[in-house]
Design a protein around this nucleic acid. Sequence first.
DNA 1: GTGGGTGCAAAGTGTTTGCAAGTGT
DNA 2: ACACTTGCAAACACTTTGCACCCAC
Lengths: 167, 167
Amino acid sequence: MSVADKELAKSRFLDFIEGKSLRMTAQRQAIIDTVFATDEHFTAEQLLDWSRVRDKSVSRATVYRTLPLLIESELVSEVDFGKDQKYYDPNYGDHPEHNHIICEDCDKIVEFEDEQLAELEEAISQKLGFSLKTQKLQISATCVDFQKMGACKNKCWALLMQTADSR
Amino acid sequence: MSVADKELAKSRFLDFIEGKSLRMTAQRQAIIDTVFATDEHFTAEQLLDWSRVRDKSVSRATVYRTLPLLIESELVSEVDFGKDQKYYDPNYGDHPEHNHIICEDCDKIVEFEDEQLAELEEAISQKLGFSLKTQKLQISATCVDFQKMGACKNKCWALLMQTADSR
DNA sequence: GTGGGTGCAAAGTGTTTGCAAGTGT
DNA sequence: ACACTTGCAAACACTTTGCACCCAC
């Protein structure tokens, strides 16, 4: 997601806010700046932590109250990796196709789109008597690192970060 | 899932239990009888209710403690429809391909498999440098009822059941 | 000024767990 | 007899909500 795309997304959110005659507050500002500054998937708790770096006054409640707005405005989407918490994906606005491939070992996530896949899904839906609205494909796999070396760069890094946090 | 298949699944679970030197209790019996008596997807709470019809002494704790065994034995799988609770699928043993199409309105679920889809997923994974382990495709759609009549048979029925429950 | 927004803490919801008593093998 | 199981209720983790104060418009 380029810098220009991020700015576009942010201004689209401002339009959305205005359209519903909602207000732009410092806390919402901090939260949306945070959301549109990352390409990564995040949890509500991470979003809280990161937003607090920008504005210490952001509360957990406000994060949880802002997330539905981001989802309603279709700039962020909920994704479910079968972990306990919900994850949020800030790249949705540009790429509604929404497929993920996840490394079982290091949780590395790669997003992808595929025209042929989309067509096939449409065809299957019709055959079963449904009219496709949205779809979600998740592939669980092992990444190249793991196949070659039996371990993932990503995982080492995550462990290191965790250690740093708990200090 | 035929009656014979269900019996097979049940006996496979008994083997699994025995292999781990676990015990067959009246409560587990009631729970697995319930699981292998349905083709439907269910939640932990539904499984509790249904199991209690067979054996009133089944507790919520036992249901939650038995579900992981069913999953570990690969006879049931967890599915995530993005609702708040986890759902469980008793048809997994026979059909590990595991794709679902769900009506947005009535939550009707149809399972399907597709060879072409499986091949395409494999190809995409390779192209991205991953080695596919498992996959999960969920299509959200509207069912024929809804398209034709703006409402679903299924939904009426569910509402009726709910009313009956609360009496 | 007013209606929406906020933080806080309490309440919810679905799931897990510690414990003392019970039971299959 | 022993280790595995159970029900109960308390504990958990994540999310939502009621309330009194606050602030963007």
